[in-house]
Amino acid sequence: MHHPLRYRRARSVLFVIGLFWVWLWLGSGALLAGLHHSPVHLALAVYALAVAILVSIPAALLAGIRMLLTHPRGGAVVVALPAARRSPRADAHWWYDEKAS
């Protein structure tokens, strides 16, 4: 089955994780250096970065696998589905039609 939205979501996840790793490589040292006045804030920031690193690795692997499994085909055809019939109760104002003055 073809799911282009899942492929796009996985691609977006990989892009965001890539941006995180570039920021980690280039700018996270400045963040930690700015927290030198408070050891508690520094410890929390280091812990948060460590957790984000550990979570980003399997998330990137799963997103890559999803991209491989749901890669869009070049000759895919879009099929228009028929519109669903609306019941009279589907209208939001069905309950006060006769009672309104």
Rank of each mutant, 00 (worst) to 15 (best):
P58H: 08
L31Q: 08
L49A: 11
L19Y: 05
L24A: 15
A50I: 00
R11G: 11
L44F: 14
A43Q: 07
I53W: 09
F20D: 04
I57T: 11
L26A: 12
F20C: 10
H41W: 09
A10T: 08
A50C: 07
A43F: 03
G64A: 11
G27T: 12
V22G: 09
H36P: 00
F15G: 09
I57M: 14
I17Y: 01
L61G: 13
L14M: 11
G27N: 13
V46S: 05
Y47P: 00
L14Y: 00
A45Y: 03
L32E: 04
L35Q: 01
F20H: 11
A33M: 02
V46C: 05
W25C: 12
W23P: 00
L61Y: 14
A50Q: 07
L54E: 14
L35E: 05
L61F: 12
W23D: 05
H37Q: 14
H41R: 09
L31V: 05
V13T: 08
A63Q: 08
W23A: 11
L54I: 15
L54A: 15
L35D: 02
A10S: 09
F15C: 07
S56W: 08
A43R: 01
V22L: 15
L24F: 15
V46D: 01
A63Y: 00
S56V: 14
F20W: 12
M67E: 06
G18C: 01
A10M: 07
F15K: 14
L62G: 11
G64I: 02
R66V: 04
A48W: 10
H36Q: 00
S38T: 00
V46M: 12
L35V: 06
V55W: 05
L61W: 13
A60Y: 04
S12L: 14
G34L: 05
L14S: 08
G64W: 09
L35N: 02
L62W: 13
H36E: 01
M67D: 02
W21R: 09
A10G: 10
H36F: 01
I65A: 13
V40T: 04
V51W: 12
A30N: 10
V13L: 12
S38P: 03
A10K: 02
F20E: 08
L24P: 01
R11M: 13
Y47F: 15
W25Y: 13
A60P: 03
L14G: 06
A45Q: 07
L14C: 12
L61T: 14
L44Y: 10
A48V: 13
A33P: 00
M67K: 06
P58Q: 07
W25M: 14
A30C: 02
R11K: 15
L35M: 06
A30H: 05
G64D: 01
A50V: 06
